[in-house]
Design a protein around this nucleic acid. Structure first.
Lengths: 344, 344
DNA sequence: AATATAGGTTTAATCGTTTAAACAAAAAAT
DNA sequence: ATTTTTTGTTTAAACGATTAAACCTATATT
């Protein structure tokens, strides 16, 4: 049934010429290589007839270029990242690259695994949404001079190419927004993480309070562990509310935290925004479904993904390309959950 | 900085032997090939020292096996599919396979593109969450004898391997559930689609009514177009409610439909489940966030993904492997949105 | 007429592996 | 002391493509 794969040789045989000619013609080098017009036509015809599909492996082996990039995603089950993956794959393909995606599931060890599998596969470069404790992997890539671009998350202490949003500003904006709307005791729930973007989100929050002369109460900031998210978010909220200076608004540093937090807020029969104002990072349909649409920081997903590909491709085409770092703005989408206090 | 890649040849040189020996040793064939014990150790040591990483391209070219499978996903931005992708990638890697993922975005043409790119890349087989109108692609693969497994969606008129849930039964269960809870005028919003799983969901719904001797009112079933989902879902709901036999419950045939529908139901200030009982296919955090947790059909995501890989790998290892078709059960997770009428 | 140039095609090396087959030397069997 | 067997190693072809170089032949230039 399935006839064997057609190779250059098969075409050459049918046409009664050497494989060299076939290669020249099929790669559009008939001019430079002065292939006879007749024979060129014949070769093309036969190639079409046999439905010739070049073997990418052979091409790559010979040329040293695989036109493949590795995409390591911290958590593919997160819709934000899944969307990024979709964009990256699409954009890369339009640039002639194929993407191999792996989800590290926020686990540095798995990330190493993936990195090695992909390197074995001769990927030319990486786009990485890094997980925590993966610094060594980044250093490794740097040392080996393997091109890569960090996406969404980067490390302040390692000089690399990256594309992220300005997390400090985004968080700062969120804080200022709530303050302007009349909220005073603003809490933040973030992940306990060494990752720079998370620290920036916290820093932005703190500066918003500071710049507004609101005295920060240490009980307002909660850092929960990824692996205990459900339990610890609950505890965080309990604690924030039980304090002598209970919060009247919460900023969630990620979409996942918000989901957990809002669920618990429902359980407690607290009303948003009457009892608690809410702003969250990330976006997802879930926020639209909440009885009170959530104010959130919208990240330019498409732009982030496309730019990451663009930078990487630029670097692959030109190894001399200098460091490229892009910061984008997140946009605060204001909705019901942060309604002005005086309107409540 | 980055020293050139280490090849078998380099190791052979250092050890003062031929590449053949190195290959034997590094592939654990020292026994069969009677390699000297001493030299074997030496080779291993050098390989480790130089941190030798085999070139997968060369291996594949020579052996004809790429240990790569293509995963074509109808819509990677859908969390359900993103999760499937994550599972498939993980499971495949544990079986020694690498996955190249592409999102067809419910577009048959893009799906063709992907298919060809992946075939060029010499993938050994496919796992496909098919989009509509992709029958020709399936026939193509069959004709070419290229192994593949359809996942989540399959075509009733094409004999293929597949792994899906029993959509008829799931939908039937949802219908019966609502009827038992006292709802009488049950509507369904589905996609207008030739895809078998969608037809099955509709069929299950209709049979649930029939078997319960509830007369089906043609205004209760709405099929909306994917590309006009927002507008048409609204129109569907309006129409269902305006009818002389207005619905008191709705089954959404997919997660995406539910999101849109629930948003609109909020806009209309209708209360779930008092005004409208709800059951939906699919799962996502969004459902938990709704003021009234949504009753939904939970699909065994992990099982689906793993089984698809399993079937494909089995087929790759043994081309004689006969047709494999697996139907799994979706589980109805009962929550507030379908509360018994008499308890309201 | 001898030489240079252009036109058209083939040869052969190469990329990094694998592996059947050939080869050589030592050990065992005659 | 031969022959056979075993053990250890190398050779070389193959996978499917690319491409510099070599090679013809015919025409143009001197």
């Amino acid at each position: 049934m399935s006839k064997k794969k057609i190779s250059l040789k098969d075409i050459a045989q049918q046409a009664g010429v050497s494989t060299a000619l076939v290669s020249y013609v099929l790669n559009g080098k008939e001019k430079e290589s002065r292939v006879g017009h007749e024979i060129a036509l014949k070769i093309k015809k036969i190639a079409k007839e046999l439905n010739y599909q070049p073997n990418h492996l052979a091409k790559s082996l010979r040329s040293g270029k695989t036109y493949t990039i590795g995409l390591i995603i911290a958590d593919l089950s997160n819709p934000f990242f899944a969307n990024i993956a979709r964009i990256v794959e699409d954009e890369a393909r339009h640039n002639g690259y194929t993407v191999i995606i792996g989800s590290s599931d926020e686990n540095a060890e798995k990330s190493w695994d993936l990195l090695n599998v992909l390197l074995n596969r001769q990927v030319e470069g990486f786009i990485i949404v890094s997980s925590e404790n993966a610094e060594n992997q980044i250093y490794y890539l740097k040392e080996k001079n393997i091109p890569f671009v960090l996406l969404d998350r980067h490390f302040s202490e390692i000089q690399t190419d990256f594309v992220t949003i300005n997390n400090f500003k985004a968080s700062y904006d969120a804080g200022i927004h709530l303050l302007q709307r009349g909220y005073r005791n603003i809490g933040m729930i973030a992940y306990k993480s060494q990752l720079f973007h998370m620290k920036e989100r916290i820093r932005g929050y703190l500066y918003a309070l500071k710049d507004s002369n609101v005295h920060f109460h240490k009980n307002w900031l909660k850092e929960v562990r990824f692996n205990y998210i459900e339990k610890e978010v609950k505890a965080a909220i309990d604690s924030m509310l039980a304090s002598d200076l209970p919060v009247d608004a919460i900023i969630f540093a990620t979409y996942g935290l918000a989901i957990n937090g809002l669920k618990y807020i429902n359980e407690l029969h607290l009303k948003v925004p009457t009892d608690l104002g809410i702003v969250s990072f990330g976006q997802a349909e879930g926020f639209d479904l909440y009885y009170c649409p959530i104010t959130y920081l919208k990240q330019p997903i498409e732009d982030l993904g496309k730019t990451a590909v663009e930078l990487l491709v630029k670097k692959l085409k030109n190894p001399e390309q200098g460091m490229q770092q892009v910061l984008m703005e997140a946009k605060l989408i204001v909705r019901e959950s942060s309604k002005a206090k005086h309107e409540l």
